[in-house]
Design a protein around this nucleic acid. Structure first.
Lengths: 204, 204
DNA sequence: ATACTAAACGGACTGCGGTCCGGTTTCTAT
DNA sequence: ATAGAAACCGGACCGCAGTCCGTTTAGTAT
């Protein structure tokens, strides 16, 4: 018998549950474990909520209470990699992190994001489908703010809206489609992103 | 032997079927009529395939044979307005149509598209959800080619990819979200688009 | 008119995401 | 130890998109 770490790892949302019941914690572990196995073995598509509940020996209601929706589950599965990526552009070394010019940082951001998407594309797509609002999810809001700040420093007139536009250009579904369907190489994507940022922000 | 379209992939959009049986034609009219009524009265969300079949006094299978999917039905409902918009940027007067500089035309395109999206947002969103590939639909391919040509004239290094990026910035879901959720005014959207195009293409 | 065939029909059926609610388990206070 | 409440559990249930297949019907050839 082992006890699950009572330290709120970083499961559902900010400031994890104040007092999570032990059975709830046990089931959450089971579910995440089973989910990763299913994804690794059969791909994201095969991860249905019924299959997950069955594999984790848990009722279907439990799955939805824990993660809210299929999209919510996918976000949880992504949260570790996403956090790492976020640390990179918030606290990491330049040019991605602080210390470079806004233009350089934005280029590095897009480049990093493109490769991140190419690694986690299926998960990201699944996390975006049927989400009440795929734009107002924490990770996206954070990315938007980051870009907004860089654009403001560069003297863009409406950084909020422009940040949205740039973020759209990094949409996972679009990037995956370019690569998988049209055979566009990652290099072309990053080169084009650099050109976009260069022309948009000049050398600032 | 005539070449009857045995490929139900596309909705019957281009130049109606060669030899459509009379009952098929009758049912298609019924369905389109009923669909428009349902949308007008209860909104796009309420347009379920069951409700439509029921209202048109037609079997469910007939609905799917005709339109392939819910997304296909939505595209059919959009096809008139979409064609009109397409005529505008292909053959219409400048600055949208031929005769203006690429930069001016691209600005006009985005502006027109934004207002088009604000008028047909729900339909466009519904036409994009669960479509096997929301990017490879005829209307989108055409828009992409148009932008690609303008960008090439302006000396962009990789017009194909850049056109994809710009097209992403005009994604219906994103625009509707900006306006409806964040209260961004259409003017801010079009102004920001102009700024983007200006910086991207200079004065060319 | 009649017979024949390919196309169209319709509705039962499947699979999936998501909800609901009566029963059970864990925690806390006494 | 015990009782009570809050949180949790599970799986039956729902609505919807999409499929399947036995039946009907429109067009054609005789």
């Amino acid at each position: 018998m082992f006890f699950v770490s009572s330290i709120p790892i970083q499961p559902d949302v900010p400031f994890g549950p104040p007092h999570e019941r032990s059975d709830a914690a046990r089931n959450r572990e089971r579910l995440l474990c089973a989910a990763r196995e299913l994804v690794d073995e059969f791909g994201v598509e095969a991860l249905t909520m019924d299959a997950l509940a069955c594999k984790a020996h848990v009722g279907k209601g439990t799955v939805f209470r824990r993660f809210g929706s299929r999209a919510g589950l996918m976000m949880t599965l992504l949260s570790d990699s996403e956090s790492e990526f976020q640390r990179g552009f918030m606290f990491g070394p330049p040019p991605l992190g602080p210390g470079a010019t806004p233009s350089e940082r934005l280029m590095a951001y897009g480049e990093g994001r493109i490769y991140f998407v190419l690694e986690n594309g299926e998960l990201l797509k699944a996390a975006a489908t049927n989400a009440r609002n795929r734009f107002d999810v924490p990770a996206t809001v954070l990315a938007h703010r980051h870009i907004e700040v860089l654009l403001r420093e560069a003297g863009i007139a409406d950084p909020w809206v422009m940040a949205m536009s740039l973020l759209s250009a990094l949409d996972p579904e679009r990037i995956v489609n370019d690569v998988r369907v049209h055979g566009i190489s990652p290099k072309r994507l990053t080169d084009s992103w650099r050109e976009l940022v260069t022309r948009l922000m000049g050398s600032s």
